[in-house]
Amino acid sequence: MTSLFTQEIHLSKRHDEIVSQRLILLQQMEDKLGGQNKEKASQMQAAETAFKRNLSLLKDIEAAEKSLQTRIHPLPRPEVVSLETLYWASVEEYIPKWEQFLLGRAPYPIGVENQNEAENTIQKEAQR
């Protein structure tokens, strides 16, 4: 009976040791998890700060690029813009006529008197 009682005491002490070790391990795990959470939060804050900084730098670079572009290529005067607009409208108007001529489906689009000159030019170009 004393042997059983001694065993019971020994097992009870062993149980207390195991429970104590378990509590220590649980506390260590909680501390480690808390540290990881703090580190993750710190990394997230650093990433957010870096993102904001990069966005600000990008805006500054774009503003500098725009400033340099206006210095290198200043905006043309309104008269020039008007002439360019008229020129491109004229080009767009004549494209279908010239396209058919260049494909060989229509006569020279400007006038009959220039057609011979155009054909001679085309033949000279073809011979080269």
Rank of each mutant, 00 (worst) to 15 (best):
I9D: 08
S12N: 13
S12P: 02
K13N: 15
K13Y: 11
K13F: 14
K13T: 14
H15E: 15
E17H: 10
V19P: 02
L23D: 15
I24R: 14
L26K: 11
D31A: 12
G34W: 12
Q36M: 13
N37M: 15
N37C: 14
K38L: 10
K38S: 06
A41S: 10
A41G: 09
S42F: 06
S42Q: 11
M44Q: 14
Q45W: 06
A46V: 07
A46E: 07
A47M: 07
E48D: 13
A50F: 05
R53M: 11
N54G: 13
L58M: 11
I61A: 15
I61W: 07
E65F: 09
Q69W: 07
P76C: 03
R77S: 15
E79N: 03
V81H: 04
V81C: 06
S82W: 03
L83I: 11
E84H: 09
T85P: 03
W88P: 03
I95W: 02
P96H: 02
P96L: 02
W98F: 01
W98R: 00
Q100K: 09
F101C: 00
L102I: 04
L102E: 05
L103Y: 06
G104F: 03
R105K: 14
A106F: 02
Y108T: 00
P109D: 00
G111P: 01
E113Q: 02
N114D: 13
N116P: 06
N116K: 12
E117D: 10
E119H: 04
N120A: 11
